[in-house]
Amino acid sequence: MEKTQIEELVAKYNEGVADPKEIKWIEQLIESGEIDLTQLRELSGLDEQIQKMEVLSPSLNLDDRFYAALANEEKQIKKGTSFSMPSLSFLLPRLAMAAALILSGFGVGYFLQSPAQKSEVSELSQEVNDLKEMMMLSLLEKESATQRLKAVSLTSEMSQASEKVTNALFVALNQDDNVNVRLAALEALKPYVGKSSVRMKLIESIEAQYSPLVQIALAELMVSIHEKKSVNALRQLLENESMPKEVKTKISESIDVLI
């Protein structure tokens, strides 16, 4: 539409004689930016009045409530990130007393325990281990990755992990959706690499990994235990074209060391 035609249309609208069809055109021209709302006198005047309309103020009650909520939120943050440390002069005598009590307890216990008590203690520690095992296995089933990480870290507290536990760790290493859980499971399996069955499963696990972080961690582990049988599995990883260059270099280096 020509400029003069638009001016005519605007003039007609301002005179209050534009028909519905012309108003539709005006809408289209407003949308395309060819007519500015300020050109429409009456509407623009109304708009100006709205802009000047007095705005009421909220009461001071709103300020009170807002600042109370803000202070509460700040407190929550502080609670989550830090805690106040008691002074050393307050702690030192108490720590010394506690240490002395524990040591004397061990000393007295060592001299007083009978063979029967010794076996009771070992039974008890076995029960604690079983309990930890049970807890670990149930936590591994949880949806939350944090819970599963907790489960994996529980194994470090066990004196000796059962086959059930190492199997569960392998499931985590090969199938968990979360890379951090996989890495933690690999870390938890390291104390058991002395067993040939664990080493074999670790080699098999190489091809189940998609994360470069886990692939590199496994390659490094293979180097540290001098597991030459892993070379083929590592070579297969290199065939993946989408693998980042840095990861390829790292794995090639591991293969070179192993050969």
């Binding site: 108003i23 005006i26 809408e27 407003i30 949308e31 395309s32 930016g33 709302l37 429409l40 009456e42 509407l43 109304l46 708009d47």
Partner: peptide
């Protein structure tokens, strides 16, 4: 929505406001 669509909405609202006024 787009800037143009907002202007049309404002235009229509002002038109109706004018009638009520």
């Amino acid at each position: 929505c787009t800037e143009g669509a907002v202007k049309v909405k404002v235009f229509r609202a002002l038109q109706e406001l004018k009638v009520i006024y």
